[in-house]
Amino acid sequence: MDSVVLDIHTGAREVVLDLTSRCEQFVSGRGDGLLHVFVPHATAGVAILETGAGSDLDLLAVLEDLLPRDFDWQHRHGSPGHGRDHVLPALIPPYATVPVLAGRLTLGTWQSICLVDTNRDNPDRHVRLSFLAG
């Protein structure tokens, strides 16, 4: 298995960050196999969704409705409402696996691989890309 870690700076805002081009570069020329994308953080996830047409912003809005910052979270360290960030990976898992054929991701036409990060307290993230040859 071949693996690399991407260092990502998300800043102090909630983001849905498209990682697809970086994933494409990583698998390019590798043949058939699986790409596994993993975020080793307790407050971020990986989603496959359409970006650029507003779905990314819709996702953040829905997460705010499902996990409001002003809820009475038991997990209280960090900025107000930070407990929601620790619940996020239960809804958006910290990983995704995508088949690779002939060195190309087999995503659908409108699908993108995205880091979902609602944690405004941690501006720096790591994303591990791993390729398991078929």
Results as ranks from 00 to 15, higher is better:
Met1His: 05
Asp2Ile: 09
Ser3Val: 09
Val4Tyr: 00
Val5Met: 12
Leu6Asp: 03
His9Met: 14
His9Glu: 08
His9Val: 15
Arg13Asn: 13
Val15Phe: 13
Leu17Gly: 10
Asp18Thr: 12
Leu19Gly: 01
Ser21Pro: 07
Ser21Asp: 06
Arg22Pro: 11
Phe26Lys: 01
Phe26Glu: 00
Phe26Ala: 03
Gly29Tyr: 01
Arg30Leu: 04
Arg30Trp: 00
Gly31Asp: 01
Asp32Pro: 15
Asp32Trp: 11
Leu34Ser: 07
His36Lys: 11
His36Ser: 13
Phe38Ala: 06
Val39Ile: 11
His41Val: 02
His41Glu: 02
His41Tyr: 07
Ala42Ser: 12
Thr43Gln: 02
Leu49Val: 14
Glu50Trp: 14
Thr51Ile: 10
Ala53Tyr: 11
Ala53Asp: 05
Asp56Pro: 10
Ala61Cys: 08
Glu64His: 12
Glu64Ile: 08
Asp65Pro: 15
Leu66Ala: 08
Pro68Gln: 10
Asp70Val: 14
Asp72Lys: 13
Asp72Cys: 14
Asp72Ser: 15
Asp72Ile: 10
Trp73Pro: 11
Trp73Met: 11
Trp73Val: 09
Trp73Thr: 07
Gln74Arg: 15
His77Gln: 07
Ser79Gly: 10
Ser79Trp: 07
Pro80Ala: 11
Pro80Ser: 09
Gly81Tyr: 04
His82Pro: 05
Gly83Ser: 13
Arg84Pro: 14
Arg84Gln: 07
Asp85Val: 03
Asp85Phe: 08
Asp85Gln: 09
Leu88Arg: 04
Pro89Met: 13
Leu91Gln: 12
Ile92Tyr: 03
Pro93Ser: 15
Tyr95Phe: 15
Ala96Asp: 11
Val98His: 01
Val98Lys: 00
Val100Cys: 03
Leu101Asn: 06
Leu101Met: 05
Thr106Pro: 03
Thr106Ile: 06
Thr106Val: 08
Leu107Ile: 05
Thr109Val: 08
Ser112Val: 02
Ile113Ala: 02
Ile113Tyr: 01
Ile113Gln: 01
Ile113Ser: 01
Arg120Ile: 03
Asp121Ala: 10
Asn122Gln: 02
Asn122Met: 05
Asp124Lys: 10
Arg128Asn: 06
Leu129Trp: 06
Ser130Trp: 14
Ser130Asp: 03
Leu132His: 09
Ala133Trp: 09
Gly134Pro: 00
